[in-house]
Nucleic acid binder design. Structure first.
Length: 210
DNA sequence: ACATTAAGTGATT
DNA sequence: AATCACTTAATGT
């Protein structure tokens, strides 16, 4: 179903022999919006490469709610899954499909092998790691240094970017969960932002006026 | 018409 | 900024 043309397009630096092996060993899965791709505590047996779509990566504490860390985009590999894989650990995060899309699941054993044999693959993994680390810093910064209203603005900006639309389809409840706060507080701040002409609130969607 | 879900609000901590 | 205890509004059956 997936031709090497597609692979080459998404992963331009992969060597042709690597692409051939990938087509053979990778398991392709389609997923729909809101699918839970992995949850906390589930064993990680594959390293997922995102072929299409966006995935929300969420850190969750059993008692203390959850927090959105960052989004994974097409052509990215989940850095956290790699570290989990190497140690045969269980997942530290929850991954939810922001949009529908496709993943290629790489068996753990192949990761070692391909990183050793293909410099294109090794560089890809390292770069991907790097990007995730950067995004993690951004997530920490926003938690540590931004107030809730600023975090909401950032949240809406990110979502706007991903969906490529100034109409953000979400509920106050969902935002509160992602930002680890309460719905009432989100509603109030959004109301204020609407009064300030920054956004327009509709039921189950928000229009971002930049 | 009734139930469910999303969002708004005042009062309190 | 969080929580409570509602109310109101929109949607689904």
């Amino acid at each position: 179903m997936i031709k090497s043309m597609n692979w080459k397009e998404i992963f331009p630096d992969f060597e042709p022999p690597l692409l051939l092996e990938m087509e053979h060993f990778a398991v392709i899965n389609n997923f729909a919006e809101d699918d839970v791709l992995i949850d906390i505590g589930e064993p990680v047996v594959f390293v997922p490469l995102l072929l299409e779509g966006y995935v929300k990566i969420i850190r969750e504490d059993k008692n203390d709610g959850e927090h959105l860390l960052y989004y994974l985009e097409k052509g990215a590999v989940c850095a956290l899954s790699i570290s989990c894989c190497f140690d045969h650990k269980k997942s530290e995060i929850k991954a939810i499909a922001e949009t529908s899309g496709r993943v290629a699941k790489i068996p753990i054993g192949k990761m070692d092998e391909w990183m050793a044999r293909f410099s294109g693959f090794r560089n890809f993994v390292l770069q991907s790691y790097n990007r995730r680390l950067q995004e993690m810093l951004v997530a920490i910064d926003s938690l540590a240094f931004l107030n809730l209203e600023e975090r909401i603005v950032k949240y809406l900006r990110d979502k706007k970017q991903i969906n490529n639309s100034r109409f953000i389809e979400t509920t106050h409840q969902e935002m509160a969960a992602d930002l680890n706060t309460s719905r009432v507080v989100v509603s109030r701040l959004l109301k204020k932002m609407e009064a300030d002409k920054k956004i327009k609130i509709n039921r189950k969607s928000i229009e971002f006026l930049d």
